[in-house]
Design a protein around this nucleic acid. Structure first.
Lengths: 334, 334
DNA sequence: GTGAAAGCGCTAACAC
DNA sequence: GTGTTAGCGCTTTCAC
């Protein structure tokens, strides 16, 4: 049925070893044989079976990326950066979506354990630090975007605490003193860090932390609306809102607008991530940008280094974030 | 280094055949041996090497999905549907992003040719009908969302012509007679079909086609803004705009709003795809929804049928679309 | 520069 | 119910 290296060898009148050498660009093969083999490959439309090749070489040159969600354009940019770098050095990136579901994620990680891929990058995970540490003993894994406390695993992310600080500080610099927070109560450590940064910024600037200004729920964007509604119903309304994700921010803006408020004037909103929508939204959304492509490139580079080395780098790398001010934080409060 | 089936056999004091039988849930194995083997697997933390398994079985139970872009939440929903169905019957879905670049797409298709996966679904492709037909002779491929004219390949999509018709008809039913179109001039056949539907709807209702009401450029969302600007500068402005994608529609709405127009009142806008943003946007965006999850499930089902059958189904399946009216087409024109 | 042959980890046919 | 063994397609040592 399928044409194999044997067929090529037979047709070309050489040994399979020679065909393999041509395939792998080995030096020790005469020009004549090389041409003969290449012609035969062409003629038979031969494509080497990578299962055989990978089994023998004990490597696949493929990295698996597991995303918690597919609705997040952030991940698209990260993967794009990964791919650019990986392809350049002969690796491929494949991805899978776990929907933040443990058993789906576990099933996908099987591709690592059963040697279908050489390494895996988790853009957020359901695994515990203990599980991750165990895995990382026998396999090459990395975390990107979202670290796990206590996990002794290669991690690439922005400094979320500082980013949260900078976001809140930007609002403070715009004159705000009543700043609310829309956060999540998942085990996602990044949002907790952003929250800590927000608190530190307020404290540093002598602003009291008010529990009624802090909303905790899930990442589901409906919470942006619910939070905003709640905040605006307070006797002493906040003048600014920092949401730990752009989707939450967008929903909050939407709700405020529906309530007849002018976002950027009556109330300012700051998001996090700088997804595509931020620029398009009305008003455009101020946010904290993560260096997605750079993070993707970097984590792949480090992971492949690990794959090809006996000593495993398990550092936590922080890449630089950037606060971007747009219309949703429109005007300075006097 | 890695523990293999041999190790398990030796440790358990049985043959590799027995271990393999346990692994594959074969009937002919005593309970005692089964327990023994399973305990040993657990103890050694053994994970079967799928390269060996797949090589031997000549199948991987993995389907590759190639997306043209990662910024499109539509694809996320489709893949989600694919995954749900595939997992249920023991298949895995992996995905890759081609960025609509031929050589990247070709590189990714190598995973099909080199037997790393059993089949591939293309959510839009750079390949020609001729190339696709050639591939489909030796391999299992399917198109989803975006057909290719002349390709004799399993395809699952909405009826784009009728969907374009229905979108335009909905605008007509709202009282509009001056309806502009933002389309693209790529080789994407879906947008051309939507365009044809738009034209048919206008003609059917005795509305003249006006060239100055038709904009052609790329899918880049900036074109939504450029088109809207152009339309609104006409002496005889359109009262409604149909864009062949939601991103184009969003950008158009944004531009109109920036120009001081009230979208849904001064001008109505209809998009296509029903991406997440449609609900959140201000105003929320009327659009044509594709049955993403259903399309994903369906194409995987049909593709796997093909994989397991000698006769290849190369039908073009149409699934039902749905026009969704929201605020961006707010009020009836009297 | 080239070929023969071992073997990567697994499954399945066959024998018992 | 279990073991022996051939072989999936490939790379790579070792001879020559």
């Amino acid at each position: 049925m399928s044409v194999t290296i044997k067929d090529v060898a037979r047709e070309a009148g050489v040994s399979v070893a020679t065909v393999s050498r041509v395939l792998n660009g080995s030096a020790n093969v005469s020009e004549a044989s090389a041409k003969l083999v290449n012609d035969t490959i062409q003629r038979l439309n031969y494509s080497p079976n990578f299962l055989g090749r990978n089994l023998r070489k004990r490597e696949t040159n493929v990295i698996l990326v597991i995303m918690p969600s597919s609705e997040h354009s952030l991940y698209g940019s990260i993967i794009s950066g990964m791919q650019d770098y990986a392809n350049k050095i002969g690796y491929d990136i494949i991805s899978a979506v776990s929907n933040s579901t443990s058993f789906v994620e576990a099933r996908q990680m099987d591709m690592l354990f059963n040697k279908t891929v050489d390494g895996a990058v988790l853009l957020g995970t359901q695994f515990s630090a203990k599980e991750l540490n165990e895995m990382s003993r026998g396999y090459n894994i990395a975390l990107c975007c979202e670290g796990v406390e206590g996990a002794d695993v290669l991690t690439v992310a922005v400094n979320d605490e500082q980013a949260g600080y900078d976001a809140a500080k930007a609002l403070i610099d715009l004159g705000h003193k009543k700043i609310a927070l829309i956060s999540v109560n998942s085990d996602a450590v990044s949002s907790r860090k952003r929250e800590n940064g927000y608190i530190r910024a307020l404290k540093d600037n002598g602003i009291e932390i008010r529990q009624e200004y802090i909303w905790h729920n899930t990442y589901d964007y409906i919470n942006g609306a619910l939070a905003m509604e709640q905040f605006m119903s307070l006797p002493d309304r906040p003048t600014a809102v920092f949401a730990v994700s752009d989707l939450l921010a967008a929903a909050a803006i939407r709700k405020a607008t529906d309530m007849g408020l002018c976002v950027g004037k009556d109330v300012s909103v700051m998001g996090f991530d700088n997804i595509t929508m931020c620029e398009m939204f009305i008003p455009s959304i101020s946010t904290v940008a993560q260096p997605c492509r750079k993070m993707g490139e970097f984590v792949i580079k480090k992971l492949i280094d690990n794959i090809n080395s006996d000593i495993k780098d398990a550092h936590y790398y922080n890449l630089d974030h950037e606060v971007i001010l747009r219309a949703s934080t429109g005007r300075r409060i006097s």
